[in-house]
Amino acid sequence: MPQQEHLAVYEVFVRSARGLDHKHVGSLHAESPEHALMYARDCYLRRSEGISVWVVKASDVTASQGDDVADFVEPMDDKDYRHATHYVLPESVKNM
């Protein structure tokens, strides 16, 4: 019988330095978003690993499913004209 969790699960995202994206680092349990933010500092930033933190209630995250991959991701695979490498330019044109 799954026990009821006392606290909600929050996912934690940390920006490690200016100019970088927030990156998922793990999760924690907290009673409110405000507490989650403080616990994120105590649990995930003990060595000043970040300068900015997001917390998101795990139940609020909508995720794509791994086995949906066929419909969800693959249709994007044939659009190689979206990538710079698709275009062959003369050697003399450098760094475009």
Binding site: H6, L7, H29, A30, M38, Y39, D42, C43, R46
Partner: peptide, 11 residues
């Protein structure tokens, strides 16, 4: 009372 609080109090 729970793990997160344990870490926080130690800080």
């Amino acid at each position: 009372p729970y793990l997160e609080e344990d870490l926080a109090l130690t800080n």
